[in-house]
């Protein structure tokens, strides 16, 4: 078990190293941050100042030197200072992280709280009107862009009905709309997925056996079917978390949430290399960790994996 964890962590580290390296190179190909800071400054002295600034920011060093010092920084868990705000990058990220965590974790819970029971119910009532209407809703939920759904929800719930605030983070109610909008695509997808997994299990031989030995249908479903359905579902948790984190970038923009996704987008526009690098590192770390957790959960669900 320990060997597996260590091996997984190693794989995760390599993944993160690859991600961070690609980001490092791509960001530097994308443009000059000093030019962005001075955009539209037409004074002749600006050129001299830009040169001084590049030196101060370490942008005049050759790329391999910059890369080496970046890796040493990462190893020391110090990501330097933002080019734009000049504040420590870790501090900026620490400030945004709680907002994104609240948003994504809540959306994750909402999505699963709806998708699990609903998926099971529609599997049990296959081809009923409930099944068909959930199919239509799920198709819509997956295919309508969250950006648009977000704006429509704001129009309806914030403006017309005036039930909830359209943006902000100062009250728990401000999170309601973004959490639901972020959860909808995942919820829709997972409902269909749970339904499919459940149907597969329901037609398995061991369920026929369970029924044959006289177990009530409720016990068959919760005791035997559900548990076996969970394995493929849990496999997807890590992946779903990745989608949620990606989706939060847009949702944070629409609802004015000062989270990590918002910071990432702004920093990309500003060519704020240190912030982009650190933000991407944190995002990839969260996905690597989620997948690791998923792997560690299997043995609890499936004794066969535990014994291997």
């Amino acid at each position: 078990m320990l060997r597996i964890i260590i091996w997984r962590l190693l794989q995760g580290l390599i993944t993160m190293w690859l991600v961070v390296t690609v980001v490092f190179v791509v960001m530097r190909l994308s443009g000059d941050p000093v030019e962005m800071l001075y955009a539209g400054d037409p004074r002749p002295e600006a050129e001299r100042e830009k040169a001084a600034l590049r030196q101060a920011l370490g942008l005049t060093e050759p790329l391999p030197v910059q890369y080496a010092s970046f890796l040493t920084q990462v190893a020391r868990l110090d990501f330097g200072q933002s080019f734009v705000t000049r504040r420590p990058v870790m501090q900026m990220i620490a400030q945004t992280l709680p907002y994104t965590l609240r948003l994504t974790v809540s959306a994750f819970i909402v999505a699963y709280l709806v998708a699990l029971p609903l998926g099971i119910i529609v599997a049990l009532r296959r081809n009923s009107w409930l099944d068909y209407s959930s199919l239509v809703l799920a198709m819509g939920g997956v295919s309508i862009p969250p950006f648009w759904v977000g704006l429509m929800f704001i129009l309806l719930f914030a403006l017309k009905l005036d039930w909830l605030p359209a943006s902000g983070v100062e009250s728990a109610s401000a999170y309601v709309l973004p959490v639901i909008v972020l959860a909808i695509p995942r919820m829709s997808f997972m409902t269909r997925y749970v339904r499919g997994a459940m149907l597969e299990v329901l037609s398995a031989d061991y369920l026929r056996t369970a029924r044959a030995k006289g177990l009530p249908e409720g016990a068959v479903v919760t005791g035997h079917a559900l548990r076996n359905t969970l394995i493929p579902i849990v496999t997807l948790v890590g992946l779903q978390l990745g989608y949620l984190v990606g989706g939060s970038v847009i949702i944070e923009q629409v609802f004015g949430i000062p989270g990590l996704g918002h910071l990432l987008v702004q920093s990309i526009f500003n060519r704020d290399f240190p912030v982009v690098q650190a933000a991407v590192l944190i995002l990839s770390l969260s996905i690597v960790l989620a997948n690791l957790l998923t792997d560690l959960t299997y043995p609890y669900l499936d004794p066969r994996i535990r014994h291997e």
Partner: peptide, 18 residues
């Protein structure tokens, strides 16, 4: 002073009195 990047949201905030 508050801020929201999305123009549509900003305008709705004005309309709703936020």
């Amino acid at each position: 002073f508050k801020w929201v990047e999305e123009e549509a949201t900003r305008i709705i905030n004005l309309e709703s009195g936020e």
